[in-house]
Structures are given as structure tokens and as C-alpha cells.
């Protein structure tokens, strides 16, 4: 069995997540080849076949051309699996390839099962074991789910070219918003999730953060709802943090949030749902109504 792995390159850099694909392939026990629209000045640490297209010519994001380039590499390599990282690049390009090949796609794989692949569902509360019915399958793996492996280089480079029209014009990148609060430096972060119920309850969480000498963090839904500024957001699209103490208040624990805080030294979660996925990473899970527990804890600390 053979897997064609799809590396990622953004803002003129080879992304580290590329090496997680090798970790996945090793677990799957398959031979590999790598496809990358990147640069020959930044070759990945890999000693196999690399199908390489030039990002200065084909763009870092250009689904039409990347699809054509990749289909050609697939034609040459005849892989059983075509594997992407489940990222803004991977989930965008993978279905285009799967549809063209009429191959099964399994999204956001977190592990292997007897029947096939394990994926999360229902807000990470449950899992599905998915079996592709087609001979060839397109897979995307969850970022962070597989240990990165650096096989060591250099690769045998096969330069790739493509032609044709494109339907999207890439205008440019917009940098992340200014961070209002540098959560990365905070020793204590107390974060609010949707479980706090309403915007009016934010000061209650902020008061606990203050009592512990820390900063206020937040999960994405709380930011999207306008309860706090984006500068406080912890997670994949916010800040990645690793404080000495992280308290998650009313946060159920979506993957994107966990990815941003699971490296914290000590994690306390307060949630009324004992089965909330935040429990997977918490050192202590307090099963309680967050709006009763947090003020009580703040009051005790003030004594």
C-alpha cells in the first residue's frame, strides 16, 4: 500500500504539520511519496519521492492549479491513499480531488480502527469508525492527532508543471488582528465558554481571573457572540497558550479550543456535563454549575 502525502507551504514557509503526515503513514504502515507546492530552497527532511511545484508560479493557494498538479502526481504515483492535514488548505482541496477521482473521503482522522479510520463527531463528544468503500481513498488527518516524524532528507525531486485557467484570484494575506492581551505570557488564564450563559456573566469570570492574578481567556463561541474581544480567544484561530494554570469555565472543549490550551501545566475545568470533551485534557473536572462555583471560589480566594 502506498500513500501520497500532501505537504503544506504558507507565507513562504514549509509548515511543520507536513511531518504529522509521515507520523500517520508510519502508523498506517504504508510506503510514502510527498506532493508539495512549495520551494526548492526549502526541501522537506524526507528521503523519498517529492513531487514539487513552484509556489511562486502556482500560488500558495490556488485550488484549480493545485488540483491539476496533484492529479498529475496521483497519475504517476497511483497511491491507495491521498493524505492531507485537515486544515484550511486540506479541507479545501481534498474534496475537489475526491470528487474528481470519485473516491471516498474520510475527514479529520484521529486514529485507526479495525474497520478503517476513527473520526470525531458531535462536537468531539463521540467517534465514528469509517470504512471507505472505494479502492482509493482521500484522507484528512486532524492537526495534532499524530506525532510528527522527520524521515530525514534529501528527497528525489520531480518538478511538476500545470497550465490552464483559474476561477479564483488570490489577493493576499491579512495578518491576524492585534492581540489585545498577550495570553502567551500569562501564568494563569481563566477562560469563559458558552456555558456561562450570557454576556452579563463575563465580569464574574474576569473577577476570578483577577483573584488568581491572571488574564481572561475565551472560547470561540463567546468571541463570535461578541461577549469579549477576539484578543482573548484561545484556540486554533486565536492564541495558543501554556500557562501554569488554565481554568476552563463552561467550555465544552471543541477540538479547536483544546488544540490551543492542552499544553497548559495544570488544567481545571468547570462544567455541568460530566462527559464534556474538556474532561479529556483536564487534570481536575469540577462537575458543577459554573455560575455558582466560580463566584464561590472567587469569594474564598478573597478571604
Amino acid at each position: 500500500m502506498k500513500a501520497l502525502l500532501i505537504g503544506e507551504y504558507r507565507e513562504a514557509k514549509l509548515l511543520d504539520s507536513t511531518y504529522e503526515l509521515f507520523g500517520f503513514a508510519a502508523q498506517l504502515g504504508v510506503k510514502t511519496a510527498l506532493f508539495l507546492v512549495g520551494s526548492d530552497s526549502q526541501l522537506p527532511a524526507y528521503n523519498g519521492t517529492l513531487y514539487l511545484a513552484d509556489a511562486t508560479k502556482y500560488g500558495e493557494y490556488n485550488p484549480d492549479l493545485h488540483k491539476r498538479l496533484l492529479l498529475e502526481a496521483i497519475g504517476k504515483e497511483s497511491p491507495d491513499y491521498i493524505v492531507f492535514v485537515h486544515s484550511s488548505y486540506g479541507w479545501d482541496l481534498a474534496p475537489r480531488i475526491a470528487a474528481t477521482l470519485k473516491a471516498a473521503q474520510v475527514s479529520e482522522i484521529v486514529g485507526l480502527t479495525e474497520e478503517g479510520f476513527e473520526v470525531g463527531c458531535c462536537n468531539a463528544k463521540m467517534r465514528r469508525s469509517v470504512k471507505p468503500a472505494s479502492q482509493r481513498a482521500v484522507l484528512t488527518i486532524q492537526a495534532g492527532a499524530f506525532q510528527p516524524v522527520q524521515p530525514g532528507g534529501p528527497p528525489q525531486v520531480h518538478p511538476m508543471t500545470a497550465e490552464g485557467t483559474t476561477t479564483l484570484e488570490f489577493v493576499g494575506y491579512e495578518p491576524a488582528e492585534e492581540k489585545g492581551v498577550d495570553l502567551a505570557r500569562a501564568e494563569v488564564i481563566v477562560s469563559a465558554g458558552r456555558g456561562i450563559g450570557k454576556k452579563d456573566n463575563i465580569p464574574v469570570i474576569a473577577a476570578l481571573a483577577k483573584a488568581l492574578g491572571g488574564e481572561l481567556g475565551a472560547s470561540r463561541p463567546v468571541v463570535d457572540a461578541g461577549w469579549v474581544d477576539h484578543g482573548h480567544q484561545v484556540g486554533t484561530t486565536g492564541q495558543t497558550v501554556s500557562p501554569k494554570l488554565y481554568m476552563a469555565c463552561g467550555i465544552s472543549g471543541a477540538i479547536q479550543h483544546l488544540a490551543g490550551m492542552k499544553k497548559s501545566e495544570f488544567i481545571v475545568a468547570v462544567n455541568k456535563d460530566k462527559d464534556a470533551p474538556i474532561g479529556e485534557v483536564a487534570d481536575v473536572l469540577v462537575v458543577a454549575d459554573v455560575m455558582q462555583f466560580v463566584p464561590a471560589l472567587t469569594a474564598r480566594l478573597a478571604r
Binding site: A98, A103, K125, R127, R128, V130, K131, D275, A282
Partner: peptide
């Protein structure tokens, strides 16, 4: 093109109190 074979809760990692 793909079928769900099983639906189940994630394995508990344990350790947490």
C-alpha cells in the same frame, strides 16, 4: 463511497480527577 461502521464515545484517557 464510505460507510460508518460504528458510533461510540471516545476512549477515556483517564488520569483526570
Amino acid at each position: 463511497l464510505a460507510t460508518t461502521e460504528k458510533f461510540y464515545p471516545p476512549a477515556k484517557k483517564g488520569g483526570g480527577m
